[in-house]
Design a protein around this nucleic acid. Structure first.
Length: 121
DNA sequence: CGATTGACGTACG
DNA sequence: TCGTACGCCAATC
């Protein structure tokens, strides 16, 4: 196989994307986090966009990544359109006990799950 | 192969 | 305090 394939398959273990998936899977039920928090935890605070790109392939990864627990720093469901149905993301969050109002997570600051604090040390 | 976009965030004015 | 600009890295056009 040529390295041209690496762009799609990657090493599956060292790729930045997989690190994002790992952290997202660690998010407890009923809690949420932000792209920037994950990016910063991985040491790429300025590459928060890449976290979003990683989630873009989250649906193609197994086990499936709870991307619905990941929102932007404002607690806004920016990626709800990527779940197939825009209401799917909000529905999943509400199912876990998270209340969403106008595509925005209620008490986001309280429900915020920071990997740097929870996983650090 | 070069330019643009993209599930964000920080810096600067 | 609010608005605009830039960076980051990869994928897509």
């Amino acid at each position: 196989m040529t390295k041209s394939k690496i762009t799609q398959e990657e090493n599956k273990l060292d790729s930045f994307f997989n690190q994002v998936y790992a952290v997202v899977r660690l998010i407890p039920k009923g809690r949420v986090t932000s792209y920037g928090a994950i990016a910063k935890y991985l040491g790429t605070a300025k590459s928060s966009r890449m976290v979003g790109w990683a989630m873009n392939g989250a649906h193609n990864v197994k086990p499936k990544v709870p991307a619905h627990r990941v929102v932007n720093r404002v607690g806004l469901l920016t990626g709800k359109h990527h779940f197939g149905d825009p209401k799917a993301m909000q529905l999943l969050l509400e199912k876990e006990g998270i209340k969403v109002k106008g595509d925005q997570i209620v008490k986001f600051k309280e429900l915020f799950w920071d990997p740097m604090i929870e996983l650090a040390m």
